[in-house]
Computed example of a mutant assay.
Amino acid sequence: MSQLLPIVGPAAELGSEATPSIITIQKARVKDQQLSCEFTEQRTSHAPPRAFALTCTEQVHADLTHALSRLVPHLCLLTEQLAETPDFWPDDSEELPVLFDSFTITGFSMGRHHGGVTLVGQRELTGGRVLNLTTPYQSFDDEQVSYSYTDLLEVTLAVALAEVEAALRGKCIAYRQLDLFKQPGSANLLLVPSPPQA
């Protein structure tokens, strides 16, 4: 894994002791294992925010896909796709129960000042077709408590936001493409002894 970047957007020359910028995620989407994101970045808390839209070319790290998968039960309840069962909420380390196999989270959109969220996902139907799902906006400060698990949603989303920020700073799957041709001086060179000279 590469070192995480202190600044994501275009940066002036920074010393080695640069403090990380402040990133505020507005939208995140994962498609074909690549992250697309809209966010603002501030070099300090007093600097004006700069808006960015970025699509990463690297594949997302497994930690990000795991964090997004934890939002699937919320997607199912908020879109009224499934009813809650005793094994509905898995532990963080567990895989999702089988009843969630046909559901995936593809992204989310944050409300103003991160006061709520809209989840976006999919359900694969029996014929192989895909049903796109979008939850109603769920406020975290909802006084009428229309969703019983708002606190759990907020905590789970905070983990996903942290993983999206880490992805923006360089956390991705570490893979190395092999060279097409062997390079001179590589360890795999075949050495042929030369005949002794007289």
Results as ranks from 00 to 15, higher is better:
A62W: 00
L78M: 14
Q26F: 01
H46P: 00
D91H: 10
A166D: 01
F88C: 07
P73G: 06
S36L: 12
T126S: 14
D101W: 04
S21G: 13
Q3G: 05
Q26C: 05
L190S: 14
E17I: 03
S36N: 09
F52A: 07
A67G: 04
K182W: 01
T79P: 03
K171A: 12
S186R: 13
G9F: 08
A51P: 01
T79Q: 09
S93T: 06
S146L: 06
S36H: 06
P184V: 12
L71Q: 03
R50T: 06
L161N: 11
T156K: 15
A12G: 08
T85L: 12
T24P: 01
D141E: 08
H66C: 02
G185H: 13
T55F: 02
G128F: 05
T135C: 09
E95P: 03
L77E: 11
T24G: 09
S2W: 00
S102Q: 11
L168S: 12
G128C: 06
F52P: 02
Q42F: 05
C56M: 09
V8T: 04
D87C: 03
L54E: 09
P193L: 12
Q197V: 10
Q59K: 10
L99F: 02
L180D: 14
L82Y: 00
V155L: 15
Q34K: 15
A53E: 08
G15T: 07
A51R: 12
R169W: 04
M110F: 02
Q81F: 00
G127P: 00
A53H: 08
G185E: 07
L99E: 08
L77T: 01
A67K: 02
A162L: 14
Q33R: 10
P10I: 09
T57P: 04
L64G: 01
L178P: 04
V145M: 12
R70D: 03
L180A: 14
E58S: 09
V164C: 13
A160N: 07
A187K: 13
R112K: 11
A166V: 06
T19L: 14
R29I: 01
A160E: 09
I22C: 02
L68A: 06
G170L: 07
V117I: 07
E17Q: 08
V155M: 15
G9I: 03
L99H: 14
R112L: 12
L131T: 03
R50H: 08
Q59A: 11
P195G: 10
N132T: 09
S16I: 04
G121C: 05
L71C: 02
T65R: 13
I7D: 06
C56S: 12
P73C: 00
S21K: 05
T40F: 08
H46R: 12
G128S: 10
V130H: 06
S36I: 04
A166F: 06
A28D: 10
L153E: 00
A187S: 14
R176K: 11
E80M: 07
S45D: 14
Q138G: 03
L14I: 11
P6K: 03
R123I: 01
L153C: 07
T57R: 15
L131I: 00
A12I: 00
L35M: 09
D63L: 10
L82V: 10
P49E: 12
L133P: 05
R129D: 14
S146H: 13
I23A: 00
